[in-house]
Amino acid sequence: MADDTLNSIRKTIDKLDQTIIDALGERQRIVRDVLADKLENSKEIRDPGREEEMMESIREKAAEAGMDPYFLEQLFREVISHSVRYQTHALVDHQNKKAHQTSIKVAYQGTDGAFSHQVAMRHFEQRYDDVICIGFTRFDQAAEAVEKGDTDVAMLPIENTTAGSINDTYDLLAEKDLYINGEEILKVIHCLMAPKKVELKNIRRVLSHPQAIAQCSRFLATLPRCHVESYFDTAMAARKVKNDGDLSQAAIGSAYAAELYDLEILERDLANQKENYTRFVVVGPEQVTCDPQLNCKTSLIFATADEKGELLKCLNLLGDHGINMTKLESRPRPHHPWQSLFYLDLEGNTEELRVSDALSRLKKQAQFVKVLGSYPVREGKW
């Protein structure tokens, strides 16, 4: 195929891609108009019957167009998921009198290009005209910024599918008067980056956050003559590698950080577990109210009396109310030697009678209970 013919085909594909983008943008504008009517008339966000009718129609049209019906169905389910996500956030903002708020300040641990910075922008950029992200060196500094009113919320990582729970965040939730207002899940793709394209055998030092180092331990083991050094944050490590200009030095971070600091990516997707996700929580100074129609989870902390069978009694109280628990984590209780705090996620919303009743009973049974909040479940794969 001649070069001029190939270039012509590529231009046609580019135009078609732009048409798809424009159509999705117009669809989103219509969703906003529909949402305004739903909020005014208290209509349901989701209509499962309507969604399945759409899927059936899409499968039929896919066959007519010579396309894979499964591919198009999955594509449109993601489009619907994105629409529901937008409407869910708008409903929560509406119910908590934030519908007219045009800007938000978000604290996070790290600097520009950090995964926390990336996920903060993803979570808020469609909801606000101006998202001001302020980076801090440590998690506790980000949390204190919320306490002092310097920022509206903080975006903190709480668990990772490879490295497990992030205990610093759990401890901050126990110690401070802060609550979970939302969650975000990011697929983490770690990259090795350097100032220029160099061979891996020439790398003598790798910098990154301890969590990233733990998640990429198998890859790092293939660099036997390389010193691995913990750094405050993945993006800070990338910035140092850029500023130093040392070709024997590299950082592990996101492709976003590599682009931001003009670094060359030497290797991609380094994590031990390829399906590597980090769950972040939006932490605010007070709880938010969520409509019962929304798919929510509730997070809480509790401690039991130091007596045999007390934990089981507390968990049975929730089970007796038909409540499904999705996570149970224990941590040492500060200032109480040999006692534990239990961190619990459950399906449901404190606005539901069964959940509120179960929590009332739990407060009578347990020694200590702090409800961290009810908030919409993060749905979708992106």
Results as ranks from 00 to 15, higher is better:
Arg138Asn: 15
Tyr256His: 14
Tyr261Cys: 02
Leu318Glu: 11
Leu173Val: 15
Phe368Val: 13
Met121Leu: 12
Asp140Lys: 02
Gln215Arg: 04
Phe280Pro: 03
Leu186Glu: 14
Asn276Ile: 03
Val198Ile: 13
Asp93Glu: 05
Glu352Tyr: 01
Gln95Phe: 09
Leu317Arg: 06
Leu270Tyr: 13
Arg204Met: 00
Met55Gly: 15
Phe76His: 12
Phe368Arg: 06
Gln28Leu: 08
Leu270Val: 08
Glu229Ala: 03
Glu275Trp: 08
Ala237Leu: 03
Tyr170Phe: 12
Lys197Pro: 08
Glu352Leu: 07
Asp130Trp: 03
Glu125Asp: 12
Phe115Val: 04
His123Glu: 07
Tyr231Asn: 14
Cys133Asp: 05
Ala212Val: 11
Lys363Gln: 11
Ala63Ile: 14
Glu53His: 09
Tyr179Arg: 04
Arg122Thr: 14
Glu352Phe: 08
Glu147Ser: 03
Thr326Gln: 05
Gln367Cys: 08
Ile301His: 09
Val119Met: 07
Lys381Leu: 08
Val106Met: 04
Ala107Pro: 01
Glu64Phe: 04
Phe232Met: 08
Trp338His: 09
Tyr277Ile: 11
Met54Ile: 04
Lys61Gln: 12
Tyr70Arg: 01
Ile189Met: 07
Lys242Gln: 15
Ala258Gln: 01
Leu263Tyr: 15
Thr151Asn: 08
Lys327Phe: 10
His336Asp: 02
Leu270Arg: 01
Ile166Tyr: 14
Asp357Pro: 05
Asp244Trp: 06
Glu147Lys: 01
Ile265Asn: 02
Arg205Asn: 00
Arg333Ala: 07
Leu260Asn: 07
Phe136Ala: 12
Thr162Trp: 05
Tyr261Asp: 03
Ser208Trp: 08
Lys148Ile: 04
Thr12Ala: 06
Leu200Gly: 00
Lys370Trp: 03
Leu173Lys: 09
Pro285Glu: 12
Pro224Cys: 11
Glu275Phe: 11
Glu351Met: 08
Arg239Ala: 15
Asn160Pro: 09
Glu60Cys: 07
Glu64Cys: 02
Arg85Val: 00
Ile166Cys: 09
Ala358Thr: 04
Gln28Gly: 05
Glu159Ala: 02
Glu229Gly: 00
Leu300His: 06
Leu344Asn: 08
Asp17Asn: 01
Gln339Arg: 15
Glu352Ser: 03
Phe71Thr: 11
Arg85Trp: 05
Leu173Glu: 15
Gln28Thr: 12
Lys240Glu: 15
Gly66Gln: 11
Arg204Cys: 00
Asp168Glu: 13
Ser165His: 04
Glu60Ser: 12
Thr151Pro: 06
Arg50Glu: 13
Leu91Asp: 04
Val153Lys: 10
Tyr70Gln: 06
Asp14Pro: 00
Ala65Pro: 05
Ala62Ser: 08
Ile323Thr: 11
Leu318Gln: 06
Val34Asn: 13
Leu6Met: 09
Gln215Ala: 15
Glu307His: 07
Phe280Thr: 05
Glu275Thr: 13
Asn243Phe: 11
Leu75Cys: 12
Val281Thr: 12
Gly182Ala: 06
Asn181Cys: 05
Asp140Gly: 00
Glu351Pro: 00
Asp306Met: 01
Glu53Tyr: 04
Thr234Ala: 04
Asn160Val: 06
Glu329Ser: 06
Glu51Arg: 04
